[in-house]
Design a protein around this nucleic acid. Structure first.
Lengths: 111, 111
DNA sequence: GCAAAAGTCAACCGAACGGTTGAATAAGGT
DNA sequence: ACCTTATTCAACCGTTCGGTTGACTTTTGC
């Protein structure tokens, strides 16, 4: 048996997939549009979206010939709850968080 | 370049490693004692501890011939902060959390 | 009706993962 | 000194991962 946390964390372990989640945080997107900023094939992105879907992090809904991807925060919430057992995290420090997101973005673009 | 989040989430993606973290949450432990409840070789556990160490989730300190493992919540905090950008998580619901930990433990023992 | 667009599928590839075993190293106990 | 305990190392093995390519399906626009 594999716990849902296995798939959620495994999905989050890839920088491309985290970047996709960030993009979807801003707006729902079609598969092709998700793929556009990346330097890899559409098929590769399609696979990544499959991983995110299986992990329950996004949902995909086909309308016409385009498949829309939208964030589904429930699985993330479960994982977040798990993590908070360690370290008794205080309320999010937004300053630290923004600095953090910035370095994340930079390290992505230099992949 | 690989982001620290890559290694943290990858480390968390394995149920054995999450179980080890749970154990270390209660107390610092020697490698042999960490290995005891698991049905795999000591070498395998040693590898898992290596992964957790590289991810910064634990620290290992050798004293005499035994190597002590203790939790290091800093890396987890960073990952947790990242996750909280999705879903605007409210303060932890402790009831839900305990139910959750329970199912986690069960799904582990039936591996 | 047909070409183009959106997306997936299947086969393949090299690298990383999770485990094993057996040998090696280091420190303690007596 | 020597056996035991604690832990790692190295080599190996099968499976999964992240990517590619090329063929395929479905929908749309003209």
């Amino acid at each position: 048996m594999t716990s849902p946390l296995d798939t959620v964390f495994a999905a989050l372990a890839d920088p491309t997939r985290r970047a996709i989640l960030s993009m979807l945080l801003e707006d729902d997107m079609a598969v092709t549009d998700v793929a556009e900023p990346f330097e890899m094939s559409l098929a590769a992105i399609s696979k990544h979206l499959g991983v995110l879907t299986k992990a329950g992090l996004i949902v995909q809904e086909k309308r016409g010939r385009v498949k829309w991807c939208k964030l589904d925060p429930d699985a993330l919430r479960a994982a977040s709850i798990w993590m908070q057992s360690f370290g008794q995290f205080e309320a999010v420090n937004l300053d630290a968080f923004e600095r953090f997101l910035e370095t994340e973005t930079i390290s992505q673009s230099t992949n």
